[in-house]
Computed example of a mutant assay.
Amino acid sequence: MLKQLMVGCALSLLKLLAVLPYGFVARFGDLLGRLLYKLPSKRRCIVYTNLKLCFPHWSETRCQAVAAHHFRHVIRSYVERSVQWFGSAKKFEKLVEIKSEIDLSDPNLPPTILLGFHFVGIEAGSISLNYALKRSCGALYQPMSNLKIDQAAKQARARFNAQMISRPESARTILRMLRVRTPVMLASDMDHGARNSAFVPFFGVPACTLTTVSRLAKTAQAQVVPFIGEVLPNYKGYRLKVFRPWENYPSDDPLADARRMNAFLEEQIELMPEQYYWVHKRFKTRPPGEPGFYDAC
């Protein structure tokens, strides 16, 4: 009962923040992130562990600085759900700068998988991409444990005519959409366990990586178009970056395709390491016999 009350209060707070100026909301989220980072926590430990694994050449000073900056971004991204979920379409549109290498308004797009990555701006990027398409679009999501938050998130993400697809029942639905040329947004850069995955290097560390993008694209004869949501400096909003379709993808080797996906992601992370979603246990699943990395957390 108490948990449900807290969830209700949190959603009410987001709705309230949605009507306030974006600059105030962003600064509030940043300040909250600064304060929470000072408290010892499991998530702070996970962020630091991931950074040390991926950037062993970094100094301790840089690692700590990026970890702190990232924590501020993460908490801020939760606070900014207010604008993304409950703000008016006009207000949201003004906050997003779109930089696309394909014509998103083209009604004759071939079967297209829009491949997102878990930077802190993925929520804003995904919603603005669906808005820019001006047409129905499939969007894969992971159901949340709290039903009230899950319902609120689905409604918010679908408000610009997205068709939400639950991950557990996704493959057939995605293929059906692609066959009628409905674009589908999905992400495959998190550790979802060994099923439909392979251990592929990510910054030199074997990472359990989904191979489903390659297989779906091959079955549906779909092009794969990467996109990234970036948080702009000085509280100026977001930039949606949509890249050209990957050439010669998929290949006949799902492992090579997964490595190519990770290599692309590594290049983008190098440009803004503080914005990647390091609070996730990216290396949770280990090859047989290898010890875990997060036991100390």
Rank of each mutant, 00 (worst) to 15 (best):
S77N: 03
S77Q: 08
S77R: 01
S77G: 07
S77P: 04
Y78F: 15
Y78P: 01
Y78H: 15
V79R: 12
E80V: 10
E80W: 06
R81K: 13
R81H: 06
R81G: 06
R81V: 02
R81F: 13
R81C: 04
R81Y: 11
R81W: 05
S82Q: 14
V83G: 07
V83F: 10
Q84G: 05
Q84K: 06
W85F: 15
W85H: 11
F86K: 05
F86A: 10
F86P: 00
F86S: 03
F86R: 01
F86L: 10
G87P: 02
G87F: 10
G87S: 11
S88I: 14
A89E: 08
A89G: 00
A89N: 12
K90Q: 11
K90V: 01
K90R: 06
K91Y: 05
K91Q: 14
K91S: 12
K91F: 01
F92R: 06
F92M: 12
E93G: 12
E93F: 05
E93H: 12
E93D: 11
K94T: 02
K94H: 14
K94Y: 08
K94D: 10
K94E: 01
K94Q: 14
K94F: 07
L95P: 04
L95A: 04
L95K: 02
V96I: 15
V96F: 01
V96E: 05
E97P: 02
E97M: 08
E97V: 11
E97G: 02
E97I: 01
I98G: 02
I98F: 03
K99Y: 00
K99F: 06
K99T: 00
K99V: 08
S100E: 09
S100H: 09
S100M: 04
E101H: 10
E101D: 13
E101C: 00
E101V: 02
I102P: 12
I102H: 09
D103R: 10
D103Y: 08
D103W: 09
D103F: 12
L104C: 10
L104S: 11
L104D: 07
L104K: 09
L104V: 09
S105W: 03
S105M: 03
S105R: 10
D106F: 07
D106A: 10
P107D: 07
P107T: 03
P107W: 05
N108M: 15
N108P: 02
N108Y: 08
N108L: 09
N108W: 09
N108V: 02
N108D: 07
L109G: 07
P110G: 14
P111N: 13
P111E: 04
P111K: 14
P111G: 08
T112V: 08
T112S: 15
T112C: 15
T112D: 13
T112M: 13
I113A: 13
L114V: 03
L115G: 09
L115K: 08
L115E: 11
G116H: 04
G116S: 14
G116D: 10
F117T: 11
F117Y: 15
F117P: 05
F117V: 12
F117E: 03
H118Q: 15
H118Y: 14
H118L: 08
H118I: 04
F119T: 04
F119C: 04
F119Q: 12
F119D: 00
V120D: 00
G121T: 08
G121L: 07
G121A: 14
G121H: 07
G121S: 13
I122R: 03
I122A: 05
I122K: 13
I122D: 04
A124W: 04
A124K: 09
